[in-house]
Amino acid sequence: MDKYNDRAFAYFCATCVPARPVYTQLRLNIREASVMRIHLQSADVVAIIAIALFTALMLAVRFRTTSWRGIVLQALIANAGAIAAVVAFEVMTT
């Protein structure tokens, strides 16, 4: 400690010791803005049902399944596609 004056030691401590990050209001707003919230309303549910029914009908006409497993698989595919389509539309419009 004899070699260094107090000003040089204070500068060393200030530059080498990491400080705690300061969470300002701006950082909190940026963090909240990065989360996308999707609100599905009753019109979106109606669109999901309509798209799912239409897709299930088109799959039934195309593949003509006769087993119950095929029908369930087509219904699952139609519902997943309908939900994905409505969520994608909501993301694009918000």
Rank of each mutant, 00 (worst) to 15 (best):
V22Q: 09
C16R: 15
Y4W: 07
R37D: 09
T93N: 11
A14V: 11
S42C: 04
D6H: 11
R64T: 02
L57R: 10
W68E: 09
V86G: 00
L57K: 09
F12L: 15
F9C: 00
A78V: 00
I49M: 08
F54L: 10
V91N: 00
A14E: 12
G81C: 06
K3T: 09
L40V: 04
A47D: 13
I71W: 14
L59D: 02
V91M: 11
N5W: 02
T94F: 11
L26P: 02
G81F: 03
R7K: 14
R31A: 12
V17H: 06
V72G: 07
L59W: 09
L40A: 01
T66G: 09
G70E: 07
N29A: 15
I38Q: 00
V17E: 13
T24W: 00
R20P: 13
Q41V: 11
V91W: 00
L53C: 14
G70F: 01
N29H: 06
A82Y: 03
A88K: 07
A19E: 15
V91Q: 01
D44N: 15
C13D: 04
V72W: 05
E32Y: 08
A50E: 13
L40P: 04
L53N: 15
Q74R: 03
N5M: 10
C16P: 00
E90K: 14
I38C: 00
V87L: 15
I49W: 01
L40M: 10
A82I: 08
A56K: 13
R20T: 15
V22F: 03
I38D: 01
A82H: 04
P21H: 12
I71P: 03
I49Y: 06
A60C: 13
R69S: 15
H39D: 12
C13W: 03
I48F: 02
A47C: 11
I30T: 04
I48M: 10
L57N: 14
A88Q: 07
Y4C: 07
V61D: 06
A43H: 07
G70Q: 07
R27H: 13
M92P: 00
C16T: 12
A14G: 10
T94Q: 10
I30N: 14
F89T: 10
A47E: 13
S34C: 05
C13M: 13
T65V: 15
L26C: 02
A8C: 03
R31G: 05
A50T: 15
V35R: 12
G70T: 09
A75R: 13
K3G: 12
A8K: 14
Y4I: 11
R69D: 14
F12W: 11
D2A: 13
T15G: 03
T55L: 08
A84E: 14
V45K: 01
A33R: 09
V91H: 01
F9S: 02
T94E: 04
E90A: 06
N29Y: 05
V87I: 14
A88C: 05
R37G: 00
N5E: 03
V46Q: 13
R31Q: 05
N5L: 05
A88N: 07
I38L: 02
M1R: 05
